[in-house]
């Protein structure tokens, strides 16, 4: 990298929940300097993090320059672009352009944004490779739950045969509450919307689209599948009834929305109550089937501002390690 050996410079592109989470936790990390933060309205150049966080929370603009996000990516000399704009599965913009431009300008990219990776995984990984920079995306799958780096680094000695996971906290919350409290789908969905666990338009989560995006990213990353959204067979949870969950429970099963990476499917599945993938609430879990290490299951918080930021920070820190 081109900057000083001691300090890693980064920009935060997108200042929603995840971007604010990143700004919050990097304050406590030595040798990281945020050189710019872009939200949808403008750019804060050399921001005082406490100040911009306070302004954002108070609904005030954070911009202190005439720059755009793309100006930051193209013209400000820095090491890492943290791309955390919202996921757009229709073409991946604006994240796709951000990531593409960052890589072309030989900047490392750390992202939680599934859109660009679903839209152009092969192009972006190739672009990173030819420009000699890294594209890291631990935060796109499973939030704080380690999976991408776990497979790539820790499980490097095993061949991964399949990955199956409960990868959407909203669906898992809904199914857990329906089963445990004998509540109807609509009731629990409204409750989840009230708590901020589900969006006003819940389709992205409950129709299995979010899980499918994660399946695509893992399939492309670990099985070289060149998969896009059209390749995934997706069934959501919106037709599941409370009675069905009770019937399943009487037979010793829970119902979970499972993404199967090798099969490229997303569908509700019966899971034995004692199975490690049977995690409750908003938790995520993934089982990684390997040739030599057997089956390894991880679970953790799949969403949340600070939780997702922790995955981003782990990617940033690993870039820092790679540099020394």
């Amino acid at each position: 990298m081109r900057n000083s050996q001691s300090t890693l410079t980064l920009s935060i592109i997108g200042f929603g929940a995840v971007g604010q989470g990143v700004a919050t936790i990097v304050q406590n990390v030595p040798h990281i300097k945020v050189v710019a933060i872009a939200d949808s309205k403008g750019v804060a150049r050399m921001p005082d993090l406490n100040d911009v966080l306070a302004r954002k929370r108070g609904g005030q603009p954070i911009a202190n320059s005439n720059l755009t996000a793309l100006d930051v990516i193209r013209t400000i000399d820095h090491d890492v672009v943290v791309e955390v704009t919202p996921t757009n599965i229709q073409g991946g913009e604006p994240g796709l352009t951000h990531v593409r431009e960052a890589l072309k300008n030989k900047r490392n990219v750390v992202t939680s944004n599934k859109g660009p990776l679903v839209a152009a995984f092969d192009e972006l990984t190739q672009l990173a490779y030819t420009n000699g920079v890294a594209l890291r995306y631990e935060a796109t799958v499973g939030g704080a739950m380690p999976i991408v780096n776990l497979i790539r680094d820790t499980l490097a000695g095993a061949r991964v045969l399949d990955i199956r996971g409960v990868l959407n906290g909203t669906c898992n919350y809904i199914l857990t509450r329906m089963a445990e409290e004998a509540l109807d789908y609509d009731q629990v969905l409204s409750e989840a919307q009230d708590m901020g666990i589900a969006e006003a338009d819940p389709t992205y989560d409950v129709a299995g689209i979010d899980t499918a995006c994660k399946v695509i990213i893992l399939a492309n990353a670990f099985f070289g599948r060149h998969a896009t959204f059209a390749d995934v067979d997706v069934t959501g949870i919106d037709r599941i009834t409370q009675d069905a969950l009770q019937l399943a429970r009487q037979r010793g099963f829970a119902v979970k929305l499972v993404g199967d990476v090798q099969e490229l499917t997303v569908s509700p599945k019966l899971i034995p109550i004692a199975h490690p993938l049977n995690v409750s609430g908003t938790l995520n879990a993934a089982s990684i089937l390997t040739d030599t290490a057997g089956e390894i299951t991880v679970a953790g918080k799949g969403a949340g501002s600070i939780e997702t930021a922790s995955a981003i920070l782990s990617d940033v820190l690993s870039l820092m390690r790679d540099r020394t």
Binding site: R239, I240, A248, S267, L270, I271, P272, A274, H275, L277
Partner: peptide, 15 residues
């Protein structure tokens, strides 16, 4: 009809 089958087990109990 929505069709929900058990997670296909790989040598472990259940399913």
């Amino acid at each position: 009809l929505l069709f929900i089958e058990p997670l296909d087990e790989r040598g472990s109990p259940g399913g």
